[in-house]
Simulated assay, not measured.
Amino acid sequence: MTTRPGRPGGDRRGVTAPETVASSGRPRLSGPRLFAGWGDDRDRGAFTAEFAAGLPALMALLGIGLTAVLAILTKLQCVDAAREVALAESRGESLEVASRLVPDGASIRVGGDGDSVTVRIEAPIRMFGIDLPGAVIQGGAVAAREPEQVTF
């Protein structure tokens, strides 16, 4: 190593300049490295391996999150459709409204007594267009029957 003179103004220590490698022209660093891992071939490809291992887990979490959002939307559709069907049945109207509002693959049960109408709608939870076995969303509504109109 070559020694440069110290700084003017009282610094008496000499600053050592790194030697250069003749073939590359870059300075050769001796001693501790500033950034661990630079030039170290043991860590080569580590990010790729970690990314390849973590990507399926990330995709699974994304799929579960999307399924949860779709389950909430299906629940809202079931409750909305049950309310509309209960109101239509309490008025004595046809149940055509049910076919427009219920989710795909849903089943509708209408019951009740002389004073009220009870509607229960069940729909399967879907994940990427496939019904999950045993996972069903339910929505229900109750409406009071309206008195029949008397004509004069």
Rank of each mutant, 00 (worst) to 15 (best):
28 R>L: 09
31 G>H: 06
15 V>H: 11
118 T>W: 03
142 V>W: 03
61 L>C: 11
4 R>P: 04
140 G>E: 11
114 G>S: 10
55 L>G: 01
59 M>E: 01
58 L>Q: 02
115 D>N: 04
110 V>F: 02
25 G>P: 12
95 L>D: 06
71 A>P: 12
109 R>H: 06
4 R>G: 14
57 A>T: 08
75 K>C: 02
62 L>E: 00
115 D>P: 03
151 T>K: 08
19 E>Y: 06
2 T>W: 02
70 L>E: 11
114 G>H: 09
134 G>E: 04
74 T>V: 10
93 E>W: 14
136 V>N: 06
76 L>G: 13
120 R>F: 02
70 L>I: 02
53 A>Y: 02
87 L>T: 14
36 A>G: 12
59 M>C: 11
117 V>Y: 00
40 D>W: 02
40 D>K: 07
30 S>Q: 12
149 Q>N: 08
134 G>I: 14
8 P>E: 01
5 P>N: 13
15 V>A: 08
32 P>F: 03
50 E>P: 01
56 P>C: 00
49 A>F: 10
93 E>M: 08
38 W>M: 13
24 S>F: 13
30 S>M: 02
9 G>C: 05
5 P>V: 13
15 V>K: 04
59 M>F: 13
98 A>T: 13
106 A>S: 15
101 L>G: 11
63 G>M: 14
67 T>I: 07
30 S>P: 10
41 D>G: 05
95 L>C: 03
2 T>R: 07
92 G>Y: 15
2 T>K: 07
150 V>Q: 12
5 P>C: 03
116 S>K: 07
51 F>E: 00
147 P>D: 12
119 V>S: 03
34 L>G: 15
100 R>L: 07
25 G>D: 05
118 T>A: 02
60 A>C: 09
127 M>Y: 07
88 A>E: 13
69 V>P: 07
106 A>H: 04
40 D>I: 02
15 V>I: 10
86 A>I: 11
52 A>D: 00
133 P>Y: 04
24 S>I: 04
20 T>A: 15
112 G>S: 01
54 G>C: 05
125 I>G: 03
35 F>E: 04
124 P>N: 12
135 A>K: 08
131 D>V: 03
131 D>S: 07
133 P>S: 06
98 A>G: 09
127 M>S: 04
46 A>Q: 05
61 L>T: 03
49 A>P: 01
8 P>G: 01
127 M>C: 05
62 L>I: 15
94 S>W: 13
4 R>Y: 01
96 E>I: 06
130 I>R: 15
47 F>S: 00
84 E>R: 15
20 T>S: 14
101 L>W: 03
67 T>G: 07
49 A>I: 12
111 G>V: 01
11 D>A: 09
113 D>T: 06
108 I>P: 06
87 L>I: 10
73 L>T: 13
56 P>H: 02
70 L>F: 11
109 R>A: 13
117 V>N: 00
92 G>I: 10
44 R>P: 03
30 S>E: 10
11 D>N: 14
135 A>P: 05
78 C>Y: 05
13 R>L: 07
